[in-house]
């Protein structure tokens, strides 16, 4: 059950990520449940969900690579193509649509000079159309590496793209971006945080939180 026989397939991962992989596997009653968190971890290790990443995850949990591929291809957050350092996801679902989300998306495309799901040539910025990100009271809303900004405008998103290019933060912080580029929020966010995302993998738990300045 533990998948211990197959740990050798990730010998080339960083020791930290090898340890995280073991912890993820140990935390579920059945190994297969670890597929999704391991895919996040593998996409940090490989920058995105490569064929090798899927094979490694398959070996870790003891299923076929095709089964992992079928899982990875189902969910939008597993990127099977290289993605930029900063993934900008713009919501155009109903509440954002009503308050200008489509214009924000168009402004993001033109500021970055890319189309939907594309990445700038220097590999810095990707822009995608997203469906509702649960920030409808602060519409229109966007995320950078899944860190939220509410109440954005076409002008502000162009400024956000310029800021990301100029400052190239190692970690994007939701509170900082909200303050610089945001407006109306869905609700009071409470205390500010110093933890954010260092890549287009959600900044949470074993797959990759990053503290400011790291």
């Amino acid at each position: 059950m533990s998948g211990s026989m197959n740990r050798s397939v990730i010998n080339h991962w960083s020791p930290e990520n090898q340890r995280r992989a073991a912890a993820i596997l140990a935390s579920y009653p059945e190994d297969r449940s670890a597929v999704m968190p391991l895919l996040y971890l593998a996409s940090r290790e490989h920058r995105y969900v490569t064929e090798d990443a899927m094979k490694e995850v398959a070996a870790l949990v003891g299923i076929a690579a095709a089964q992992v591929r079928s899982v990875a291809s189902f969910y939008t957050m597993y990127k099977r193509e290289p993605v930029g350092d900063y993934l900008i996801s713009v919501c155009t679902s109903i509440s954002c649509h009503l308050l200008g989300g489509d214009q924000v998306l168009a402004a993001a495309f033109s500021a970055a000079g890319v189309g939907n799901g594309e990445t700038t040539e220097d590999g810095k910025i990707s822009v995608e159309r997203a469906e509702c990100i649960g920030a409808c009271g602060g519409a229109p809303a966007v995320q950078v590496n899944y860190e939220l900004i509410e109440g954005i405008t076409p002008d502000k998103i162009a400024a956000l793209v310029a800021w990301l290019n100029d400052t190239q933060p190692n970690v994007v912080l939701t509170d900082e971006m909200q303050q610089l580029f945001g407006g109306q929020r869905s609700f009071d966010w409470g205390p500010t945080e110093s933890v954010g995302a260092s890549s287009a993998v959600p900044a949470f738990g074993p797959y990759g939180s990053a503290s400011e300045g790291q």
Binding site: G134, E147, E193, F204
Partner: peptide, 10 residues
């Protein structure tokens, strides 16, 4: 928790 809610997860 949905993947797009990293702050909620934290």
């Amino acid at each position: 928790i949905r993947g797009e809610y990293p702050k909620a997860a934290r």
